[in-house]
Design a protein around this nucleic acid. Structure first.
Lengths: 220, 220
DNA sequence: ATTACTAGGAATCGAGTAC
DNA sequence: TGTACTCGATTCCTAGTAA
């Protein structure tokens, strides 16, 4: 990807194109970037071509980044974090919510909890803390799902297939825990956390409480 | 600054040029960036011109980013953080260490603590928690020092001049606290934190304990 | 070896303009 | 209004090569 394009993407994101459709003319974008209208128009078309941008036709065109576009910026952000701080530790914030998570179902299975013990050195409490993610954390979660993480291998039991589950070491209020992402889970804004303890009672969490999870990501 | 140059800078940083001198030829840099040797050579010279890079002459040249170069990357990192997460909250990590900080001296002064009360709503405990920063956090701290923060105005008392002090809202283990930076402090790797409480005893911290401080920075 | 000059070719950019 | 085309101008990149 060409640097100029990446900066155009950044500029569009900066103007609000990450969350919502923004109305912007190629002239305006050009002005923002100290480039001509024609040039900005070109950038937009190339970004559309690359499927990093969506456009709603109209008088003043409406623009919005695609997931692919967001990922491109997140990748750059993460790269820089790694370069500047030597590691990546991202914060994901959400609100405690009642289950419905698949996680509990998985963690209950001996085959999974055994693998957690092998990888993390403890047997998890057989329940998950479910967090409804803040809007601002969704992009980070999206990125996290792309990461390899630590794999708990799936298995088959009586005609039922249990898929792989990805784990990430994390902390909640300095307590070690694990973020659990079933490999074939759907696009969701719920994140599940497991721990040696019953986090809900240990931290005295109630539905709606705001929780910050710090997730560790491998340096590459 | 030209996008290509920024990416060259990023690449050099990625190869280790942030902390140490790295030996790299223009050919190698070119290969890394999918550009020709001549082009990479040009980038290097332009970055030297911009004072974002230092070079030690020799057979294989040694390169290292300057503070200005680091700041350029940090700025980009921060921009992206703001765009992607809507705010900037940086983590700075250090180890508890004994005083020598100027902070305690300042906080003891009624004129300062009164201003802290006005700005943050509490009277600080008359002592500071001093952290010797981790190497990885130094660049973040450098950046923080550049930020406006919240200003405690200095004053004059009996021929002695007390300078301005910058503050940043922060948390240590979910506890609200304030990072304090005397405006004319020297380049240092010690960061001082004040709080309503005696953090040292409340969190049972001993010299050498590792502490993560999360500092909030204004959205612009 | 490596760096950096020159010259030519390639791409990018912006003015004018059609739609 | 807007967008996006053509087409020179300019910038950027590379091959060749000198130091």
């Amino acid at each position: 990807m060409k640097p100029e394009l990446l900066f155009a993407l950044k500029k569009i994101a900066e103007l609000g194109g990450i969350e919502d459709w923004i109305e912007i003319t190629s002239k305006e974008l050009g002005d923002q970037m100290d480039k001509s209208q024609q040039c900005a128009s070109l950038y937009i078309n190339e970004l559309l071509e690359l499927e990093m941008l969506l456009r709603l036709p109209g008088k003043k065109a409406k623009l919005k980044l695609t997931d692919k576009g967001k990922k491109e910026l997140l990748q750059l952000y993460e790269d820089l974090g790694k370069i500047l701080h030597g590691k990546t530790r991202i914060e994901i914030t959400g609100y405690v919510t009642k289950g419905l998570g698949e996680g509990k179902f998985y963690i209950g299975k001996e085959q999974y909890s055994e693998q957690i013990f092998e990888n993390f050195g403890f047997k998890p409490f057989p329940g998950t803390l479910n967090l409804k993610l803040e809007k601002e954390s969704l992009s980070s979660f999206l990125m996290l799902r792309e990461k390899p993480g630590i794999l708990l291998r799936g298995f088959v039991e009586r005609d039922r297939t249990y898929g792989n589950v990805k784990c990430f070491k994390a902390t909640v209020q300095e307590l070690m825990c694990i973020v659990v992402i079933p490999e074939r889970s759907h696009h969701t804004d719920i994140m599940e956390v497991v721990s040696k303890h019953n986090l809900r009672s240990l931290l005295d969490l109630k539905d709606g409480d705001r929780v910050i999870v710090r997730v560790e990501i491998d340096g590459r």
